[in-house]
Measured scan of single mutants.
Amino acid sequence: MQIFVKTLTGKTITLEVEPSDTIENVKAKIQDKEGIPPDQQRSIFAGKQLEDGRTLSDYNIQKESTLHLVLR
């Protein structure tokens, strides 16, 4: 499925993911596309910070959902 990741600069990245993917996985995909190390990424969805060990389905993130990426 496709999800979108919006950065603070307003750029939107499209990722191909599975509901079973962990947040860690997703951060690795963002690193592949953007070169941002996962330890600098904070992902926010529906106002909640997403934890690395959880999966997209844990957070009820579905296709075409938009995550927000904040850098630390």
Rank of each mutant, 00 (worst) to 15 (best):
S57L: 11
P38S: 13
E64V: 02
G47A: 04
R42L: 15
K29T: 03
S65F: 06
V26W: 02
E24G: 13
L67F: 02
L69E: 05
R72I: 14
L69P: 00
L67W: 01
M1P: 00
T66S: 04
T14W: 06
P19I: 08
G35L: 05
T12F: 10
K6H: 14
L8A: 12
E16Y: 13
K6S: 05
S43I: 15
K11P: 04
A46F: 15
G35E: 04
A28F: 12
N25L: 13
F4V: 04
T7I: 14
K27M: 15
K48D: 07
F45Q: 03
T22C: 03
Y59K: 00
I3G: 01
P37H: 11
I3D: 00
G35M: 05
T55L: 07
K33E: 08
V26I: 12
S57T: 06
Q40C: 13
I3L: 06
Q31L: 12
F4S: 03
T55A: 06
R72H: 10
K48T: 12
Q41S: 09
K27I: 13
V26C: 03
Q62S: 10
L69G: 01
G47D: 08
Q40K: 11
D58I: 03
L8N: 13
E18H: 14
I3A: 00
K27P: 01
P38R: 13
T9I: 07
Q49K: 10
I44E: 08
T9P: 02
E64T: 05
E34N: 09
K33L: 14
E64M: 12
Q2M: 13
R72V: 14
L56R: 00
P38H: 12
E16I: 13
T14R: 11
N25E: 12
Q31P: 04
I44H: 06
K33V: 13
T7V: 10
I30F: 06
V70C: 08
T66K: 03
F45T: 03
T7E: 03
E64W: 14
S65W: 06
H68Q: 11
A46K: 14
P38F: 15
K29W: 05
V5K: 00
G47L: 10
K6G: 03
E24T: 07
I13T: 01
L67C: 01
I61R: 01
R54Y: 12
I61W: 01
T22Y: 05
F4P: 00
T12E: 04
R54K: 13
E34I: 15
G47V: 03
I61C: 03
Q41F: 15
L8F: 13
P38K: 14
L50T: 03
L8G: 10
L69N: 02
N60M: 07
E51R: 07
K29N: 02
P19S: 09
L67E: 00
K48M: 13
I13S: 00
